[in-house]
Nucleic acid binder design. Structure first.
Lengths: 115, 115
DNA sequence: AATGATACATACTTTAGGGTAAGTACTTGT
DNA sequence: ACAAGTACTTACCCTAAAGTATGTATCATT
């Protein structure tokens, strides 16, 4: 009666796939809506939180810090906070963050050729 | 009483941002979980639907055709169906699909250096 | 008459990402 | 005393993406 169909399959392998597929690994790091945009803006150099906000007007603050925190824990950006009031916090790309720029550029190149 | 906060902002610009940001444009095309993986497997050449299934065991059939259709309407892959029974359908990268390979490779290169 | 192979389609549910709207802490300026 | 600036935080909601399970069409073979 309940013949299970093998076509719709397991996803337990998914985790292992994630650990083994380098492209997926990269997507995990930069594959959200805002992250590439943030990285792009940081490619110009260190920026304050408020500067990023101004540079990317469409992003909400929640999304902005959320992704900045994620990028920081992933080691792609470096956060520097000076203990002053009002706060002065800057973000910049780390070395591995900078090494992502070729990826971003490859994407941009492809896009401009195909939009 | 209801002082509206300007910090949490508009997203009407988002659409325009999408149309203007090339990186976002590319992400729209390949920025899902399975698409880069599918493209990678098609980089080896034309493949049948069932071959892709076997090559990517963790994907469900729903996701597989859903993304293949999307890639097709985006002009990244070409579908060829021979009118035989049982069906014989192959997928291959189009020219713009092939031009995505540098992006995929850049991602893979970065990943292998940072996993 | 039932089974198998192939390439899908589809109804339903779950989950994750993103969005909205506000609040907080600390100090300087008026 | 109170507003203003900076860099967040948090509670709640909404939607879109992904997953589960099953169904379908066609013909050849047994």
């Amino acid at each position: 009666m309940t013949a299970i169909k093998s076509s719709s399959t397991i996803q337990q392998n998914k985790k292992t796939a994630l650990e083994m597929c380098p492209v997926t690994f990269t997507m995990e790091k930069i594959g959200s809506y805002w992250k590439p945009i943030i990285i792009y803006h940081l490619s110009e150099g260190s920026k304050r939180y408020s500067e990023l906000k101004k540079a990317i007007p469409a992003v909400t603050e929640k999304m902005l810090i959320q992704h900045l925190k994620q990028l920081e824990t992933d080691g792609l950006v470096i956060r520097e906070a000076r203990p002053v009031v009002p706060p002065y916090v800057t973000y910049q790309l780390s070395e591995s963050g900078r090494q992502l720029l070729p990826v971003i550029h490859a994407m941009a190149t492809w896009a401009t050729a195909h939009m």
